[in-house]
Design a protein around this nucleic acid. Structure first.
Length: 432
RNA sequence: GCGUCGGUGGUAGAGUGGUCAAUUACAACAGACUGUAAAUCUGUCGCCUCCGGGCUACGAAGGUUCGAAUCCUUCCCGACGCA
């Protein structure tokens, strides 16, 4: 993996660059559509490619449970299995520690609002009796499968092993995504754990990389190749699409919740480790997400890429990019689409609302996506009311196109040196 | 014509003397969704409301009863059976 910064945003941390992976280039900043179970829900990979996405993200935990990482490995890796030849990122399962743990059965979002009553809990209350599918131990996390109830203990080593079997271009260290409702003491304890897990993830990654290299050398040496030729062969294969031997890049994840000291501590800690890039994870309050990102990105080494995990509403994308984020992934555009919430320049609209039933205009008149080129709001409304499968597909194409294109436009504005004008113009219309 | 069964809110369909403005599902209406337990979830869903309650309602009209969607009478409508 190779990352080059092409242009920096003046008076801020923002930058535009190119991230080279074994499966192609990612022009950063970039939005990464989420395909948890090795599919961007409702779309074919051709549709994902056509709407302009360069890279996608899949999930370790889900693919480990179903169909099983060994099946994916035996299929020739994730790229081949799901027919996506571009770059792939896999999340480590760290988010499921939160979503199936502290957030299980509750209405807690990783992005909360300061006014959210869940934040008013003065001290951490003991809710260990509450049913949850993820239970945290010092060594790893015990998951009770949401599919069949079977129990699986995931350690950092196991997460990395699974991710190596899946074979994504960028993989993440196993972390603990904490709930925004946790108090400082717990955040600190969890951070210590995440840091230990980061070191162990890194060690396991190195170990697996080396054993693969060894395997590769061994097989080549049978052919009596010179060392020089061997090295060239290994080098070549690591950038070849069909190769099983290319090595994934490993990103460490900064945690620390909403606390400045913890976030900075985590950023310092991660910076010292030999990661290829970094994820910024955990929970935020909407109102102060920007400061958290800023604290972290001021510390992280400039020359390595940063991925703001799970963030992706338009205003957040501007915020993140301005503060030095290179990659974003988020389920919002795809999930919102399937639930009838569509992005427009003037804000999100709920296409199932009565007023759209006879609205024969496009979702967005100027939009260049497949959906807008061919269909009206009334048709989309009809598909949603009729519960037709095509509703989800057409809506997802539009929403992903909207968000992917927005980030591309923001990238362009950095290169053209009019980021702040573009931001102001876009947000003034969007937040109306 | 006689007999039997049945007519409940937008629909289907519970309820069969008080706890019924009426279970439930669907439809409708609105909202939520940020590293996907998610094509999901939540709320509203007779009218009015100073949110205490008030009013009109279970085919129609009468009646019994302290009290009726529920019991009785007549009528109207539907299905089936017999002429």
């Amino acid at each position: 993996m190779d990352f080059k910064i092409e242009k920096k945003l003046k008076n801020s941390l923002g930058r535009a660059g190119v991230l080279k992976t074994a499966h192609g280039e990612i022009h950063t900043p970039a939005f990464v559509p989420v395909g948890t179970k090795a599919t961007i829900k409702a779309l074919t990979t051709e549709q994902v490619l056509e709407l302009g996405a360069e890279v996608i993200l899949a999930n370790t935990y889900h693919l480990y449970l179903q169909p099983g990482d060994e099946i994916v490995r035996d299929a020739g890796g994730l790229h081949k299995f799901m027919n996506w030849n571009g770059p792939i990122i896999t999340d480590s399962g760290g988010f499921q520690v939160f979503s199936l743990g502290a957030a299980y059965g509750k209405e807690i979002s990783k992005v909360t609002k300061i006014t959210d009553p869940s934040l008013l809990i003065p001290e951490r209350f003991d809710d260990s009796d509450a049913p949850r599918l993820a239970k945290i131990g010092q060594d790893g996390v015990s998951f009770k499968s949401h599919l069949d109830g079977s129990v699986h203990y995931i350690t950092p080593e196991k997460s990395i092993e699974i991710q190596h079997n899946l074979g994504a271009d960028i993989i993440f260290a196993f972390d603990e995504c904490t709930s925004p409702t946790e108090d400082l003491r717990y955040q600190e304890e969890a951070l210590e754990r995440t840091h230990r897990w980061a070191e162990r993830s890194l060690a396991e990654h190195e170990k697996l990389k080396n054993s693969k290299k060894q395997l590769s050398h061994d097989s080549h040496s049978v052919l009596n190749m010179t060392d020089r030729a061997l090295d060239a062969k290994v080098e070549e294969s690591s950038f070849s699409n069909s190769s099983k031997n290319f090595s994934s890049a490993l990103f460490g994840i900064v945690q620390g919740g909403r606390d400045e000291n913890l976030r900075k501590k985590s950023a310092h800690f991660m910076s010292k480790l030999d990661f290829d890039g970094f994820g910024i994870g955990g929970s935020f309050a909407k109102e102060d997400m920007s400061t958290a990102v800023k604290w972290v990105n001021k510390i992280l080494p400039e020359e390595k890429p940063r991925h703001l995990l799970g963030i992706g509403e338009p205003e957040d994308l501007f915020m993140g990019i301005e503060n030095g984020v290179d990659l974003f992934d988020c389920v919002a555009p795809t999930r919102n689409a399937r639930n009838g919430s569509l992005y427009t320049k003037g804000g999100k609209i709920n296409i199932t609302n009565t007023k759209y039933r006879n609205d024969f205009s496009k979702i967005e008149e100027a939009c260049e996506c497949y959906t807008c080129k061919s269909y009206t709001r009334a048709y989309l409304a009809h598909l949603f009311h009729g519960k037709e499968m095509l509703a989800g597909t057409l809506a997802t194409i539009h929403n992903l196109y909207f968000i992917v294109s927005l980030v591309k436009k923001i990238r362009r504005s950095i290169i053209d040196e009019n980021f702040f004008e573009f931001k102001k113009e876009f947000l003034s219309e969007y937040s109306q």
